[in-house]
Nucleic acid binder design. Sequence first.
RNA 1: GGGAGCGUGGCGGAAUUGGCAGACGCAGCGGACUUAAAAUCCGCCUCUUCGGAAUGUGGGUUCGAGUCCCACCGCUCCUACCA
Length: 846
Amino acid sequence: MKLYTPHELEPRWQRVWADTDQDAVREDGSKPKKYVLEMFPYPSGDIHMGHVSNYTYGDVIARFSRMKGFDVLHPMGWDAFGLPAENAAIKHKSHPAKWTYANIATQQASFQRMGFSYDWDRKVVACDPEYYRWGQWIFLKFWERGLVERRNSPVNWCPSCATVLANEQVIEGRCWRCDSEVEKRDLTQWYFKITDYAQELLDDLDQLQGWPDRVKQQQANWIGRSEGANVDFVLEGTDEVITVFTTRADTLFGCSFFVLAPEYKDLPKMVAGLPQEKEVLEFAEAAKKVSAVERAQGNREKHGVFTGRYVINPINNEKVPVWVADYVVADYGTGAVMAVPCGDQRDFEFARKYDLPIIPIILTDDDPLFEKLNDEKSRVVTTVDWECAMEAEGTLVQSGEFTGLVGGKHSPGEDAVVKFLEDSGRGHRTVEFRLRDWLISRQRYWGNPIPAIHCPECGVVPVPEEDLPVRLPEDIDLAAGETLATHEGFAKCTCPKCGGEARRETDTMDTFTCSSWYYLRYTDPHNETAPFASDKANRWMPVDQYIGGIEHAILHLLYSRFFTKVLRDMGLLDFDEPFTNLLCQGMVLDSKGEVMSKSKGNVVSPEDMIAEYGADAVRAAMLFMGPPDKEKLWNEDGLAGIYKFLNRLWRIVYDLVGKAEDKTLYDPEAAADEAHANAMAMKRERHRVVGKVTADVERNNFNTALAAIMELANTTAAFLRLKPAEHRVNCETGGPLCRDVAETIVKLMAPIVPHWSEELWHDALDHEDSVHDQPWPEFDPELAKADEVELAVQVNGKVKAKIMVAADAEEDAIREAALAAVSNALTGKEPRKVIVVKGRLVNIVA
RNA sequence: GGGAGCGUGGCGGAAUUGGCAGACGCAGCGGACUUAAAAUCCGCCUCUUCGGAAUGUGGGUUCGAGUCCCACCGCUCCUACCA
């Protein structure tokens, strides 16, 4: 018997697999396809435990799927553009590509040491011109379809990264990458009109049965559809209309003031020449300067000033004062709101602070005011003695012809008021989304250049398709502060339309544009005439199992869904959604449950673990730690335990085929009936465990799958070492059964510990081919059933006895046996009811 | 403030549609083997006044609840003045 030596056998098998193209995609064509994909990594440096967990899950699923008879696509690549490479280049006075490709080489070597079965021929690297040219091509196609827009508006600016950010990349007012406070700036930027797809992105979440609910919920919240109405107010003394969006048109009678965002574009015009002008403009300026971090803090104190102007409430022609206040968001709705302090907590707080009227127009029926106001013919403006606004559903009062109707969101009262507004031409139903267009331009070098040219004659002109890719210049000195905009060789160009002197667009695209379609490129990675061939993409897509971190619940997953839908509308794809099943893995934390970080000094290096225990043990330990979607507390003791288990199972396999050095286990002459009975029990366990492992792996419950294999190991070991020796099951008495169990164990372990299994497959089991090309073990549910089963006998729900009955025993027989077993506890009382649950228990109600 | 989720031994975690709570493992304890240690093998391992009690707390539905319903407590994640 060989000893288990991971450090020798793992590299040896990795070389064999590489030499034989073991992991290459085999497109048999007769088999069903399975596309298993893990989110591609950013090449930040060495791999960490998060990579190990993410990619181990994917590798187990890919290997299992191959054995189950699928053609499997399981590729890997790198999300290689981004700021860290640029920062490293500045620090080391070198080029971002150097740092990036060095890290890719390091990570790829680690992945190979982990035994991940990627088809390396399909490697996609996002900063490779052969890849990014097609990102530019897609950009041009989006442009043709009217999905690209350049516009000036307030944007998020990260001063530390010196670039703008998309809304999705601002987390609590801070940059997603460097955590700096984000500022607002008015800039002209490039946008993808993702809002054109807002409704479909929301609706199609229903198609995603294989996604975790919380991810769908997060996307739905982010898209934020809200049904309401636009209501037109007329600025007093003019014909100008200021429109507001509201979901509570039913409360229009309670509108006692009107509020504009500080950024409201017509504000300076509105206050021009008024005594309030100076104060208003100063206030607006100050409000704009408040940082996003401060804005993000909940329950901020609200501030505002009166503008000196009034608007006319369209429902009752009342004059209401116009304020400007910092609690109104400029880019949602119209940047103006009607304030109803009675029905909205924010308006309520503002009204209290500035002593504005709070008109009660909606009440619960048990409110003491109800009787009084419900009768009131004339309108009463009251400052009610409430502590907070009445945001719940209630009955409308003092609301003209609408008095008495039920008010609230989507209420009959709201319906009636909107109908009135529509009939009188003062408003209409509409839907607002929280989702904003995706700001994709970045003022950075290390990204995909936006293929556009600014011509003084022709304006903004797309780069012609045949001129792609627009290549990043390699001779750039970032450390000296050079940028694409100052790099004359790059920026100076001629206009493709008129041939005159022009300037190239020097912004690059958000790195999330690269990751929004890479999964399509894997289906056809070497295509030189298109990003991918439709037939290949349609053959492999959608991804059957996608695996990655929850941190992409909105960002990457939303953008990829958007890209897929646009490419579908271009006729390139024939499906609606890119990822059928999504597994969001939980974080790997240290043994105390804390995030691993360099500053805390608690980072566990996968390479150290591989060096000590081997990759197989690291893989198995990761899988055994818990369900993939939960947080995992990394514990080296667990890894050591798994390493011992692999050793133990290794010996059991050799024992089963009679290759262990200890040959004194049994005496064939003395083989008794007992040995046969034990062999049958072992066979039963083999079938039960194969059934359980198969079901568990299919549900991604890798921890319980491994636990079931441990159970099989335990029973097998017990039968092999049973005393007296003549009762043992072994290669002599058990014959073919022992060999079957040995092969079954090795095959069940193959997706989890690929090197260990391959070695045993060859050395212990004497096979020439690869274990990874074997079909997954079959099992017979009939053979997994025991002849006799133990049932619990409960009296009033408490277990009082256990009985053994034949597995196919009739209910009457079971009842009789159960009653006999607990006759003492019943003390002669007649049971009122007996419930028999076959195979589980009997409950006697006394 | 809004949304989602989670609370099970010393620890990680098990428990198909409600059906014997604690599978499997870690740590710990005891034993065998050994001159000894490591490794390996075997056993014990929620509490208990031995009646029982126990899945965060209190209630409910049910023959039966970790699982379903209601309220509360605690924790985590997401989001944030979205009108």
